[in-house]
């Protein structure tokens, strides 16, 4: 049974439907990436899961929720821009967060030391948070989300604000974290999603346009692709190849055409024959394979 099941979740701000009914589940020991361009609704979904926003309709079910219990106990949440009490030290804030999450003073203290170590904040633990750099704040934010070992981690853009080294560290950490919790993290960068996630939810304008495990998606979108550029007479070419059954999709833009095909060999032969037969002014003929990147771009552009 998944840690969380989300069904037909919608969010309306005034008259604007921002989340248009999304359905997904988050499983144990899985890292799920919520991938989409800025403004797709990633933050809104995460905030609804955290309880900070109320869904306009739809349901969110937590597997471990007890009747009458507080589901917030089950969640560790990192907002996109974590904010703290600036007058506290890093250590004080973590202990405070731990006690708020229901740990005893002693537990909170021990867990704080562990996390300070894990996130490389030991040196800075005694310093006031007002003196922390952006990267340190991000790590402190992650630490406070982990403090009570929640079964579900919601991380909103956990690596976007970090430099390449910090980014690497946090991505490695995510791989570790999913051994204990279900992790949902949002990002607008495909590479980050590809790197650590088991599953990807492609979000675009409030809808999940594609979802699946990395392997599934790779398989699905590993199509052959042929790019053709002519100096003119594209219409002749197009009518010449119109009957080809091997063509799955085509994107045509003036004298440029992109074909996604099922059988590369057959397509290649057919295309070249048409070009030679009509003496078409060929400029470019390229065979390649699609990647997730293409899918991402296709989703975002269309």
């Amino acid at each position: 049974m998944p840690v969380v099941s989300v069904e037909n979740l919608q969010k309306r701000f005034k008259d604007h439907l921002v989340i248009k009914g999304v359905t997904f589940t988050l499983g144990d020991q899985r890292c799920t990436a919520l991938l989409g361009p800025n403004g797709a609704g990633k933050t809104t979904i995460i905030r609804m899961l955290s309880g900070l926003l109320k869904p306009s309709s739809g349901t969110i079910n937590f597997r471990d929720a007890q009747k009458g219990g507080d589901f917030r106990r089950l969640i560790g949440y990192l907002p996109q821009h974590p904010v703290f009490y600036e007058w506290m030290t890093g250590r004080e804030f973590l202990e405070y967060a731990g006690e708020l999450a229901g740990l005893t003073k002693k537990e909170a203290r021990e867990r704080t030391e562990e996390l300070l170590e894990l996130l490389g904040l030991r040196e800075a633990a005694k310093k006031r948070i007002s003196k922390y750099s952006g990267g340190m704040r991000q790590r402190l934010g992650i630490a406070q989300a982990l403090i009570h070992r929640p079964p579900l981690l919601l991380l909103d853009e956990p690596v976007s604000a970090l430099d390449p080294i910090g980014r690497r560290e946090i991505l490695e950490l995510l791989k570790e974290l999913k051994k204990q919790s279900a992790v949902l993290f949002s990002t607008h960068i495909l590479n980050d999603a590809e790197e650590v996630s088991d599953e990807i939810l492609f979000l675009h304008e409030g809808e999940i346009v594609e979802a699946g495990t990395m392997d599934e998606l790779r398989q699905k979108y590993r199509q052959a692709k042929i790019d053709i550029v002519l100096a003119g007479k594209m219409d002749i070419f197009l009518s010449g190849v119109a009957g080809g059954e091997f063509i799955e999709t085509r994107l045509i833009d003036g004298n440029q055409a992109t074909f996604f095909v099922t059988d590369v060999e057959e397509a290649k032969q057919a295309f070249l024959q048409v070009i030679v037969a009509h003496r078409l002014p060929l400029i470019k003929f390229e065979i390649s394979k699609t990647s997730l990147e293409d899918v991402f771009m296709k989703v975002v552009r269309s």
């Binding site: 955290s50 106990r73 703290f84």
Partner: peptide
Amino acid sequence: GVAEMVLVKPV
């Protein structure tokens, strides 16, 4: 925004 950090905990 710090209220959000506090109230996302079971408080």
